[in-house]
Design a protein around this nucleic acid. Sequence first.
RNA 1: GGGCGAUUAGCUCAGUUGGUAGAGCGUUCGCUUGACGUGCGAAAGGCCACAGGUUCAAAUCCUGUAUCGCCCACCA
Length: 736
Amino acid sequence: MDERLTKPYNPKEHEDTIYETWQESDFFMPEKTGTKDGPRFSIVLPPPNVTGTLHIGHAAMLAVEDSIVRYKRMSGYKTLWVPGTDHAAIATQSRVEADIYKKEKKTRHDLGRELFLKRVETFAKESHDTIVNQIKKMGASVDWSREAFTLDEKRGRAVNIAFKKMYDDGLIYRGARIVNWDPKLQTTVSDDEIEWREETSPFYYLKYGPFVIGTSRPETKFGDKYVVMHPDDTRYSQYKDGQKIELEWVNGPITATIVKDKAIDMAFGTGVMTITPWHDAADFEIAERHKLDKEQIIDERGLLLPVAGEFAGQHIKKARPLIIEKLKAKGLLEKVDEKYIHNIAINSRGEGVIEPQIKRQWFVAVDKEFSLPHSSIEGIASGSTTTLKRLMRHVVESGQIQIIPERFEKIYFHWIDNLHDWCISRQIWYGHRIPVWYRSKADQPGADQEIFVGIKQPDDNGWMQDSDTLDTWFSSGLWTFSTLGWPDEKKPDFKMFHPTDLLETGYDILFFWVARMILMTGYLLGDIPFKTVYLHGLVRDAKGRKMSKSLGNTIDPLHLIEKYGADATRMALLVGAPPGNDINLSEDKIRGYKHFANKLWNIARFVITNTDDVDMNAEYTSDDKKMRDGFDEEIKNITENIEKYRIDFAADTIYQYTWHAFADTIIEEAKITIKNGSIEERASRKKLLLSIFTDILKLLHPFTPFVTETIWSMLPKKDSELLMVAPWPDVKENKS
RNA sequence: GGGCGAUUAGCUCAGUUGGUAGAGCGUUCGCUUGACGUGCGAAAGGCCACAGGUUCAAAUCCUGUAUCGCCCACCA
């Protein structure tokens, strides 16, 4: 017997060497697996952000993906799993900014663009190395030779080409639109990056000529010169759209214009409101509809502009009570509701309170028609006209992309239907610089600047690049094909592995990322990025709370691997985690699976020591035949569940079988048979032991790769040197 | 305001097409049994949130209610 087996199983002694063995074998590379013309399976790793270290959610993701990938590889597929990391623009930048400020009391502006970016890159590099190590510790069988980064040179080229093509097709435009401005980070953020927080604040009723208007933000009201009501509101039928009225306002008399718009909720407040188009998205829409003037009241830092009169230059927070005082003194304050509950917008990255502003930004037009020259999408012919929104809806609606669990399809459609143009420019430094250059026309002062959109800076003089960078999701939207060689569509990887088979990611980034990949792939390739989307849930703590640094309930996956082993950690994250469901993770659960790894180890000891004289050509007794047939049913069941992406069932089924059928029954009976049975009975049971155990190792391998590979190396008889490429048990023919 | 999910043993959760309720951890009792005490054998513990309905049969399907959680939305 192998002397390693004499001790209890200690994952630490085996895991790192096993991973090295795998890597040296090159079986992580598709070139080494499957057959030339055989089936292929490809998947990309959702690139983790280089903002520090992986958390337990990443570990869960790796466990699910690696299980599927290993299963496919063993099933004879040419299997590719592409790893990489994401520069995560704003998240990484604000992390480094905070670090620098904490240590050196300096801002990025103190350092300057170039120096600051160096610091971010250093941080990103360290982060990357940590992450790579963690991915390896989890046992992920990714192809490291194909590793990519969203901000490396190849991906940068892909980004610029995509941008230029969209610009040329009129799908990317520059426009003054209302955006979510974060005065703290001094940048715009997309709608999806906003979190809403409930807040109780006073709600003021102000006299506005003959009307009473309600507001929670009196500091924005200085320039309000349109008063809006519903056209069907009989209370105000004496007022006509466009009618002018004179009234006394905060800083003196003004002329206001009546506007009738159906967006007004007659039941809310007095049914009348004034609008501030520059600082409110809803007001902006009304102003656009009626072609009204828009005036900026608050600047980028949150200070009031000259329109505020005596309050100019003050910060909105400080000015508000003073403004109320003045309104009160002028008799314009009708009443105050102190307990008004409303939602305020917060930047989810960095916690700044969002101040809507009208700004000149770059947008992707989601409703604009364009023609798609080449299309592999069923139902959309090459050369036909469509919009990004329609494309995104169609590929899921027609079933060309399947989302698991299905209920998320509805959520996806709903999101698309509410989608506005996507603001892609960011006023931060870390990221893909917008590939647009400007030059003022020297001979024509005051004229518009010349604009150049391209892959790289034009050769002649005087061009200045746009200082903004792109939303990080712009580059990750290209991920499924920018990692396979695009824009060169002749690259073998692209031809062989695109579209990918599966995208496995958290439901929390369905809109951010999944939808954007569908958008980019549909537009740039006329294709789908993947056939199936598997959405996993969030990992919560034992009490069901979200893990967060502030709660102090985060679990470091490396700590778990150190204490219980990667296999136990993986099992705990797989079992009980059906697609789309959050799982509560407790250390007790992981400890249970550590015991299982040891159980398997001891089973191995029993089987190996009792089958050294096994004859694999022996006849099964009828009892043993039944046992083997029963196990074949389990194999079928497990295989079907993996195919259905019910990894949780598959992992639990083989766990239950191994412990409570194989160990508790077959081994226990074997002890008696081997001692007292006839020659035939003994030979049969020994064959059964080794035969089932060999297949158990195969079935368990996708879920617990380390311990099974370690045991495999001790098996005297086997059909493959390494378990990771041993053939998956096939029972289809056994069916009688 | 709209949508989605959850509610099952002391705790955390499974329960795949409806067929007399399961796991892990915890608890109690007994076992140094020739693979394993990280174990083995046994036991206690559940009107499956509530109210109706469909069915020979419901934790499972339908309707409603309650509580919790999540997502979406331009109510000033």
